[in-house]
Design a protein around this nucleic acid. Structure first.
Lengths: 168, 168
DNA sequence: TTCCAAAACTTAGTATACTAAGTATATTGG
DNA sequence: CCAATATACTTAGTATACTAAGTTTTGGAA
């Protein structure tokens, strides 16, 4: 990092105040959002973690585990564990084909499909609460800026080798 | 929620696209940020989780566990576990006083104090990467909007009883 | 055709974070 | 004063998420 000698936006001390740190603020937004959402979804026996995978499957049913991982933004071992739980709870089934026996396709059960009508509005409710008092423009600005931060960090992460790459 | 009949900002389907969800975007920002930061801090044997507590202690040394939990935005059991690790690693010491024997005060070791000079700039670096191509105004707007979302969610969470409160 | 590399998933081990319920100490109301 | 409540922390159990290192299957190059 910092190969070019660009000036820092602020001195390092500035970020010791968590309220100034994008990372800290994002964590609190995420956890608060998740906690509130889970209060509603748990009444339908769906945890916040499960909800994240169901949301994607409502959009695209029958994709592979790897595709699902990418869309949800989780690593594959996380997906393996989550799918075990979803399968056990009767929300999904896993199917193998002769075409490519490495792949596992994930399908929603009828029950899980029905849940969309109940659970999707609960998410919209939390969104409404989270953005109370904000204009549509402000909400869209927030999204746009977060996406830019995500893109910036993804670029940098792709650039840098991991610790294990270095050791190898 | 939704006691007043305010209109929804968008239909529920809108949020099935993760890219439109504040919660999803905040999670990805948080994890990307955390991952990149940890790459640097791990070289000094500090994990991302430990870093969060150290950052607060650099600001306020000698506070109680409860105060530390609040400032860092974690629940107390999380703090207990984190402090065990920090103590074992030689970053903090815990002190009891006769004044109030319930309280535990957390103090940085000299080594941990020295680390601030090394680790604080690493955080500033990640911040620089995360906000690359953004103006100071945009960065400040992002912070302000995230703080508003946090305040909105905190209000709502305080209002609602938890599941266990209902059962009690 | 066979061997090597890549792709898809799993397993193992760990860190982070929570809720619920417990212990010990302090404070407060009757 | 003392019982009830509140405060501060801990323990137990679980969910979420990761990295590193497997296994199995496929595809491609020699």
């Amino acid at each position: 990092m910092a190969k070019k000698n660009q000036p820092f936006r602020h001195p390092a001390e500035y970020y010791t105040n968590p309220e100034n740190s994008i990372g800290y603020l994002a964590r609190i937004v995420f956890r608060s959002f998740s906690r509130l959402l889970e209060r509603s979804t748990l009444e339908h026996d769906v945890s916040a973690g499960q909800w994240r995978f169901l949301r994607q499957l409502w959009r695209e049913d029958g994709i592979t585990q790897r595709e699902l991982s990418e869309r949800v933004g989780m690593r594959e071992p996380t997906t393996v564990v989550a799918l075990k739980g979803l399968e056990k709870a009767g929300f999904i089934t896993r199917k193998k084909t002769a075409e490519d026996r490495r792949k596992t396709f994930i399908h929603l059960t009828p029950h899980a499909k029905e849940l969309e009508l109940i659970l999707a509005p609960l998410n919209a409710e939390v969104h409404k609460v989270a953005t109370r008092g904000m204009t549509n423009e402000e909400v869209e600005t927030l999204r746009v800026l977060m996406r830019r931060v995500i893109a910036n960090l993804a670029d940098e992460t792709a650039k840098l080798p991991t610790l294990s790459d270095i050791k190898a």
